[in-house]
């Protein structure tokens, strides 16, 4: 491989990394807010899956990718509200409820997919995200094609990072979210409605999970397949922990886990003779390895996972 070949390899690897990191990052940013408010939502996997299917359904029925996004986000907002009702209002166990959401997501998407699109019909053409080249910037040598020739959700994901950071650390709302996750009773005694804040983060975060899901089905692929989220929701949870519950940390973690996935594609393309199943394992093994080496170094909010009840 010459110099130019290596450069091409790196460029295309980085571009793949950004695309792979995007769904993880979007979901992780939502989870940062959910977790910071003291709620553990492992139902994000199922929520993303519902977003994936409903994105395709919306686009298919109303004929535009934007309707797809809207349908997905509306559906996942409802899922978020359901999760919040059980865990915040009723004080149900968050891990159990999250697991239920995951099972629900799997079952609902499989059934609806077969009902709407059937089993053996060929995949209908739907409107999907298009690559948007940013004028001028996309012409920058090397980096331009990596950073500025992507689909809209990729730009949105990366722009959301500084926004989320500022909201969390520089606005009254962010302070409220952090206080509710650390010491809800203290927040209550200064007049903050703990339940309202948790509803807000759970519903908002679920919408982002929905967006992440429909990027998979309307961006990476152009259709829905069963269980297509394939653990990315759990990887997003890992990214939040590895990123120490901050948006910037989640960005770095998402890029790392995205690189694992990108590497997997590269290795498969190289045709090394190793069975591809082992290649598929790379992102997951990477997640486990990173988290295992990281346990105890990331402190969750003090009231993480604890329902708030008055007396």
């Amino acid at each position: 491989m010459g110099n130019e070949g290596l450069l091409n390899f790196i460029v295309s690897f980085l571009a793949t990394d950004l695309r792979c990191a995007t769904p993880i990052l979007i979901a992780a940013l939502g989870l940062v807010f959910i977790e910071r408010s003291g709620v553990v939502n492992i139902g994000v996997e199922g929520t993303m899956l519902i977003g994936s299917l409903l994105g395709v359904v919306g686009s298919y029925m109303f004929g535009s990718v934007w309707w797809g996004v809207l349908t997905a986000v509306a559906a996942t907002a409802l899922i978020g509200a359901l999760f919040a009702y059980f865990t915040v209002t009723l004080g149900a166990d968050q891990v159990v409820t999250g697991t239920a959401i995951n099972i629900l997501g799997m079952g609902v998407t499989t059934t609806l997919n077969r009902l709407i699109f059937g089993l053996d019909k060929s995949i209908p053409p739907i409107d999907t995200f298009k690559v948007i080249s940013i004028p001028v910037l996309s012409k920058i040598p090397v980096l331009g094609s990596v950073l500025f020739q992507q689909m809209l959700p990729v730009y949105v994901a990366f722009l959301l990072v500084p926004v989320a950071h500022v909201v969390l650390f520089r606005t009254p709302f962010g302070l409220t979210v952090r206080s509710v996750g650390e010491h809800p009773k203290a927040a209550d005694t200064v007049g903050i409605n703990v339940w309202k804040i948790r509803y807000a983060t759970v519903i908002g975060g679920s919408c982002l999970a929905g967006l992440a899901g429909c990027y998979l089905s309307l961006g990476v692929l152009s259709f829905f397949i069963e269980n297509m989220v394939a653990g990315r929701g759990f990887i997003a949870l890992a990214a939040v922990i590895f990123g120490k519950y901050t948006p910037l940390g989640a960005l770095l973690a998402a890029l790392l886990f995205g690189a694992g996935e990108a590497l997997q594609y590269r290795f498969q393309a190289l045709g090394s003779g190793i069975p591809y199943q082992f290649m598929l394992m790379i992102p997951y093994v990477l997640t486990v390895a990173v988290l295992a080496g990281f346990v105890g170094k990331s402190t969750p909010p003090a009231s993480s996972g604890v329902p708030y009840t008055k007396e």
Partner: peptide
């Protein structure tokens, strides 16, 4: 039992829950 949040600074604890803002920011 103090109603303070150990992870936050003194001033963040003090203004918690108040409309203490400049524009959209704290």
């Amino acid at each position: 039992h103090f109603m303070l949040i150990p992870a936050l600074s003194v001033v963040e604890n003090v203004i918690l829950g108040m409309r203490q803002r400049r524009g959209a920011f704290l």
